[in-house]
């Protein structure tokens, strides 16, 4: 269902870290390691952000575009699907899916403006061709859920919705897109982890609030197996975000 996370294709398609951390054989043959793979994706996520700031689309479009890009590379090789073309095309497609359509010519204009490297310089027709290939690679599943909405709701519920906490947690959520977390965890969990990290950093006592969160029995039945499967997921998530956060803030 389009607006129901637990029955959405997004939920059904969540992957395990190990499934995401697979370097396609064509790329492996060219000497790309898992580390390289992750770094390229992080770099491309930044590229999407930079383009988005120029064409002026909202954060949700950026987040959807990065998710598309990361999904594509769980199935396709970078050798066949050049990240320098896939990345702007994902932004292009996401802008349509999120109803903030950006014209291809505008995108091409900013690509040329931002990137001096010739290898980034793709034309409109390349983007249009790649758009269709990406649609196929995504198997036409385009609805993506993000942590932002859950975040503001949870912050409000916890009484932490002051400017300071809102900005910090929002920034943390943005940072999670530097990793593949959106392919692995339900968005609300990512939001919760970010709140948790922020509350520790800002020395807010949220223990009681976290304990008070009631578990919905309907969801438990759906999720129980999943959580058992990977009991350490929340830890990984927190650690991942924490690493990112620390990296960003130059602690």
């Amino acid at each position: 269902m389009a607006a129901n996370f637990w029955t959405s294709s997004h939920y059904k398609q969540l992957l395990d870290q190990e499934e995401v951390d697979v370097v396609q054989s064509l790329d492996k043959d060219r000497g790309i390691t898992l580390e390289d793979f992750k770094l390229i994706k992080m770099h491309m996520a930044n590229y999407i952000l930079k383009l988005a700031q120029n064409v002026k689309v909202r954060q949700r479009v950026v987040a959807t575009a990065i998710t598309y890009m990361r999904r594509v590379y769980t199935r396709k090789s970078m050798t066949e699907y050049d990240p320098r073309l896939v990345t702007p095309t994902c932004l292009y497609l996401a802008s349509k899916a999120e109803e903030s359509t950006v014209q291809a010519r505008l995108l091409v204009f900013y690509i040329k403006k931002i990137q001096s490297d010739e290898k980034y310089k793709y034309e409109i027709k390349h983007i249009l061709e790649m758009e269709m290939k990406i649609l196929e690679a995504l198997d036409y599943y385009l609805v993506v859920f993000h942590p932002y909405r859950a975040l503001s709701q949870l912050l409000q519920d916890a009484g932490l919705n002051d400017i300071n906490m809102t900005q910090l947690t929002w920034g943390l959520v943005n940072d999670t897109y530097k990793m593949d977390l959106i392919l692995i965890h339900p968005p609300y969990l990512i939001a919760l982890a970010c709140i948790y990290i922020a509350s520790v950093l800002r020395e807010k006592d949220t223990t009681a609030w976290f304990e008070e969160l009631h578990v919905d029995m309907n969801v438990v039945s759906l999720l129980k197996a999943k959580l058992c499967e990977r009991g350490e997921s929340i830890q990984f998530l927190l650690l991942g975000s924490c690493i990112e956060f620390v990296g960003c803030c130059n602690f």
Binding site: V200, T207, F210, D216, C242
Partner: peptide, 22 residues
């Protein structure tokens, strides 16, 4: 709408773990 799922892990453990990681 206020119902969210938390892992079954005890929050106190998470706190300790988190502080240690930090």
């Amino acid at each position: 709408q206020q119902q969210v799922i938390l892992p079954s892990r005890n929050n106190k453990d998470v706190t300790e773990w988190f502080q240690e990681s930090l």
